[in-house]
Each structure stands twice: as structure tokens, then as C-alpha cells.
Design a protein around this nucleic acid. Sequence first.
DNA 1: AGTATTATGTAGTGACCGTTACATAATACA
DNA 2: TGTATTATGTAACGGTCACTACATAATACT
Lengths: 207, 207
Amino acid sequence: MKQPAIPSKRSVGRPRAFDREQALGIALGLFWRHGFDGTSIPQLTAAMGISPPSLYAAFGSKDALYREAVKLYLTRYSGFMKSLFDDKLSARDAVEHALLAAAKQFSEPGHAPGCMISSAELQTSPGNQKLADEIASFRLAAQQVVYTRLEAARNSGELPRITDTASLAAFYAMISQGMSVQARDGAKAAVLKRLVKLAMQAWPHSN
Amino acid sequence: MKQPAIPSKRSVGRPRAFDREQALGIALGLFWRHGFDGTSIPQLTAAMGISPPSLYAAFGSKDALYREAVKLYLTRYSGFMKSLFDDKLSARDAVEHALLAAAKQFSEPGHAPGCMISSAELQTSPGNQKLADEIASFRLAAQQVVYTRLEAARNSGELPRITDTASLAAFYAMISQGMSVQARDGAKAAVLKRLVKLAMQAWPHSN
DNA sequence: AGTATTATGTAGTGACCGTTACATAATACA
DNA sequence: TGTATTATGTAACGGTCACTACATAATACT
């Protein structure tokens, strides 16, 4: 039998025969591409190389596994937003860098195209409404990050006092969401970056 | 028993006891909100007030019903793009009017928020890949309509010769797709219209 | 060695899915 | 009135879903 690649903290009992983190990464890949409803337990167990009881022992339920996958997505793949927290950049550069990083990542090979959060649960069965609302709250949280940065820029005089920062934050959130659809439909990084350049023309003029 | 509201062309056999067009409208509403996978036959038959055999006799299969619903969506709800074919408008006004009309319609009460096509099949099970590709082709077709209008404007001198019309068309298609996500997350018409105003700042300068 | 604890493999569970068989009802036409 | 044709209602079909009961295997601790 295989040895556990990562020893569990709990030393009692038979050790897990697969790498939990790696299995979660596989689940992330499937959920990203096919969504919650579009990914079945047999698909997941086959891709992970484990049996259903092992999956349930490790993750609890399909819902819980999906939520963990989303969490992993946010830690692994939301780095394109990090420039928004960089105070050495102007607000404009921070937003532009974030969008350019998104353009690159949404079209990267090796994983599903687009943003997992932007594409998820836009249409869903009534039974998944709660999950859909949770995903929507992540989208709103990202928009809130932009808003906070813009509002700071407005208060520091970097943006005109009259700037409608809420609308501007919604605008750049919308750009990211739209880029995600374009990526899903095959747009490459170079194309997406041109879209970002166009979007930056909406930035308020200094005068 | 009820009389058929719309007499069928075929006069032979027992007449249909429900209004086929109305039932299709109900299916459209459900598919728009819940997507293909998220809408079940029992849901459909319950909302239509008919039994499964009646649905299958009238529409053939769930796939065929969905395709008919998409077709009905395009005839009923794609009117927001009609200004793109209006030669009395400048290209810029045509695009702006189309986006403002989209802003209004995506947030209209009485149906699901957003654009049915932009939200559909972004993540889907492997078995629905063909359907997902068909929906994607509708998105690309809409973008092509914008491109054609922009290219005509470039040839007529309304847009600078050096204008990257392909990127500009992708940009405004992306705006519509992003607005659809914003609408799904609760953005009202007034908010979406402000996003359109910002998006129009990407329009090429005359000089 | 014996016990407690946790994971695995086999083989299923009940529920729901899309779809249909079958008998019957309602119409047009001869 | 009889026949052909199409729709309806009842009741299911096989398949897949998320999930699990159960026996067994592998570890730590005493």
C-alpha cells in the first residue's frame, strides 16, 4: 500500500492513503471547469483515484468539498488582485495591474479559462440558491476591495472629489467578469489585455 | 376539456389541450433563471400544467425544448441590439443605445435578471459540451454584429482608419456580458446605465 | 499481544433524473 | 358509424445521482 505523502496531524488510526491537498486540487480543477452541478462524485473519485467513502471521510459532502475548493481557488488564484493592496502604486496603476494580471491568468493554460467565481452559479437550480448566494457574496467582496481602494484615492486627492467611486468600482468589477466570459469563449491574453487598455480610458481625468 | 387556444395546422387527431407557445414561454422563464441542468422535467411540466408525455409530444426532448426556448429568447429579448442595425444613428450612438437598452432589459422585473445567453453554460458537464458550444456561438454572433457595424464606420471615415475594430467589438461585447453578471447580482437599471456611460469613454477620439 | 481509532474496498441504498409503454380520449375524414 | 390519427393520463422504465452500511485493513498506544 501507498504511504501518505503528507502525514496527518492525528496519529491515531489508519493513515490516509492519498494526498488530501492534491485531491482537493483535482476537485478544484473539475469544479472550475464544470461547476458544482456539472461535476459528479464519480467524476471526482475517478480523477482523484479514490473511492467514494474515502472522499466522504476526507471532505464530508459534495457541498463541503466544493466550498473547500472555492477557498483553495481564492488562496491560489486570486493573486491577480494583490496590486490593489499595494500602496506604492497609484490607484490607477493598482487597478490596471490587477486587470492585466487577471487577463493573463484567465487565459492561462493548465486550468479552466476565466474566473471560477465570476462563472459560477449564475444560473442554478432552486436547491442551490444558498450556494449561489455565497458565490455572489464573493463577487461583491472583490468589488468592495476595489471600492475601498478607490475611496482611499478619492480621500487622498488622487481622484477628484466628485468621483462616483461606487460606480467606478462596479465598472472594473464588471470588466473582470466580462473578461472571464471572453476567456471562456477562447480569448487569449493579448486580446484581453487590449480590452483592459480600453477599460482604463474610463478612469477619471485629473483636471 | 379545454379547447386549444391556438388551433394546430394539422387538423387530424386529438387536438392539443394546452397553448404550445405559452408553455414554451414558461420553459423560457425557467431555463433563463435556472439554466439547462438546473431545470428539471418535473419542474417544467408542473409550471406548464401538463404531463411529461404532453411535453415530449409537443417538443421532442429536453434538449429540443431548450433550443426552442433560446430561439424564443432571441426573438423576444434580443431587441436591445436593434439600434446596431439603424443607419440613421452614428456608430457611437448605435452602440450606446444598444448598451443602454441592455441595461434596462437586464434589470427588468418579470423575468430572470441578466442576459440568458451571457449567463448560460459557462460551466457545464462534459455531456453538455455541444450545447455549451452552441450557446458560445450565439455570444460570438452578437459580437460579430458589433464588429460589422464598427468596421462599416471605419470604412466610412466615422472611425479613425487605425481603429482596432475587432478589439473594440470584443470590448463592448464584454461590457454586455459583464453587465449581465452585475444584473444577476442585483444591480438596478440606473447603476447599469452609469456603467454604460463609463464604457463609452473607450470610444476612439475623433482627432 | 491487545485495544482503540481511523481509512479503505465492496457493494449497495433510496431518490430523482429524462424518457416512454400502454390504454384511452378526442378529433377529421370516409 | 367506422377508421385513422394524434393527445392525454397513469404508471412506470433504466440510469445516474449523492451518499453510506459493513466488514476489513492499517496505524498508535498500552
